[in-house]
Amino acid sequence: MDLTIFNAVIAVVIAIAFAAANAAYLVLAERRGAGRIQRRPGPNVNLFGLLQPPADGIKLMTKQLMIPGGADKALFMVAPVLAMAPAIMSFVTIPFSNTIVAHSMNVGVLMIFAFASFGGMAILLAGWGSRNKYGVMAAVRAVSQNISYEVPMLITVITIVMMTGTMNLHEIASLQSGGFWNWNIFPVSMSDGFMLQPLMPISFLIFFICSLAETNRAPFDLGEAESELVAGFHTEYGSMGFGLFFMGEYANIVIGASLITILFLGGWGCPFGLYPGVWWFLLKIYLLIFSFIWIRWTFPRTTIYGLLNLSWKILIPISLFNLLLTAGLLKVF
């Protein structure tokens, strides 16, 4: 791995550009998808709406940044950056294909979780810093949600780590190459010998639900529950402050989808073992993102206690049992 400073700068720039482009066009995709589900076209003027995201971006950037009176200015300004930066940093260790990876880390999985936990801090500071009661309530909600969903998520990841024996995302994905029967979601086999893991679909489901919750997506978007808390922790944010939160949110969605793809769906591998490459990876993550959008526009929002009950009473016990049983099965086979 020849990473010179030049390479590193390029890697970061590409990560930022990728995140920004994704954020912009995922908004468009979300609006189009929502439109289709609701039987309306969505933004479709000017090249099928392709000019909508740049227009939105220009609008956001040219707006005045308003800081509410009585807000903690420093925290108010820092919070959007804190929300955006870890999301971008997380891109660094995600392998898009066998060769396209900025930096393959031995503790890649942990790194993504570490930066994800940083996101909670950003939300808390944003809510508190804007000195808005809705903001504080939403921040407390969002953070308690983040914390309680990190637990089952990490426990589920441990099953993967046990199976593959590594925390390096690149290696985890490489191990699943060959075809969909090798993927971690399917229980039958791994490339290094026969293995029976009938519980992995449950792991996948738990992980999927948790990543919905971790990225604050509906039906778990309690942090920005617009019908109760106006806009949640970013009620007071306008212009690019809001834009950064938005970009961070969509970058997190991309990371969540990538993580699911790498951990469960074989990374860049083709389902049939042919021509592995970055396009398969992108196809998989965009399918996952489509399912995120689909879910968002289908379900109503949960309550805060329903959400915590789901985590503590259902997901954590099941993921713990899942972990135990998987460990046992690993011993058996």
Partner: peptide, 22 residues
């Protein structure tokens, strides 16, 4: 020790700081 570094962020930033803020 990257492992400890990651645990540092995970535990101190993700848990301790947030607990204190709460």
């Amino acid at each position: 020790s990257p492992f400890v570094a990651m645990m540092q962020i995970l535990i101190y930033v993700g848990a301790v700081c947030i607990t204190i803020a709460f």
